[in-house]
């Protein structure tokens, strides 16, 4: 059963007075509980597609249904509310709030949900434990190493838990050990929780961890293949 349905999806930008077609009548389905890697050369539209799927950006035309919701019909605030309920984010840049502790950063998306303080606490502790950073809960981002910071940055995506986990270059500039830790986490989420994951990567070895690879070229679907 499809969680995401894109039909004739277009996204245009205007640069220097000229329209640039970043996504060009794209058709794509993503199954619930699937693990998808989006690949393609720079400018192929993979990050734009990821942003559209996560409700961060809006399509110029076409139809995009996520879990039965037509995102084009939601206004800005409704879209923000929808994101808080359905999408977990792993950013390429860590994007942690520098004045909040690791615990508070993980808790931040949960404050948008109607949960008791005890339930929030349980989820935050669980998320921090799943990234092996429970003992660093009081540290602020500047007090953490790069690898630890990335692991904290992954944790907010786990607490809600989201309908869709959106990851943009989740291994970024990490060394192999930290990259493997992130990918192991995604693997566990997918197999143990049935989490739907859509991830953008340039790295073939990372993409092979996903179930399926979708390659884009010039805003169109070039190849769609099962990786395992």
């Amino acid at each position: 059963m499809s969680l995401i349905e894109c039909r004739l999806l277009c996204k245009d930008y205007e640069r220097g007075g000229e329209a640039v077609h970043v996504l060009d009548h794209l058709d794509l389905s993503i199954e619930r509980g699937s693990y998808t890697a989006l690949m393609g050369p720079s400018g192929s539209g993979k990050t734009t597609l990821l942003n559209l799927l996560a409700g961060i950006d809006r399509a110029t035309s076409g139809e995009l249904l996520v879990d039965g919701t037509d995102l084009a019909q939601l206004d800005r605030n409704q879209l923000a509310q929808w994101r808080s309920r359905h999408v977990g984010y792993v950013f390429q840049l860590y994007n942690l709030v520098p004045v909040l502790s690791a615990y508070e950063n993980v808790e931040l998306p949960l404050l948008l949900h109607d949960l008791t303080a005890a339930e929030r606490h349980r989820r935050v502790v669980e998320a921090l434990e799943s990234v092996d950073l429970a003992e660093r809960h009081a540290h602020q981002p500047r007090q953490l190493s790069g690898g630890h910071e990335q692991r904290v940055a992954n944790a907010p995506a786990l607490v809600t838990p989201p309908t869709l986990l959106r990851a943009d270059e989740p291994t970024g500039d990490h060394d192999r050990t930290n990259a493997d830790a992130v990918m192991d986490l995604f693997g566990r989420l997918h197999t143990e929780r049935g989490q739907t994951i859509v991830m953008v990567t340039h790295d073939d070895s990372i993409a092979r961890r996903a179930q399926r690879t979708v390659r884009l070229e010039k805003g169109r679907l070039a190849v769609q293949e099962a990786t395992r």
Partner: peptide
């Protein structure tokens, strides 16, 4: 700017 955008992305409305 980026921090505000992150907050908005997480679901905090612009207002």
């Amino acid at each position: 700017v980026r921090e505000n955008a992150v907050l908005e992305t997480l679901g905090y409305p612009r207002p």
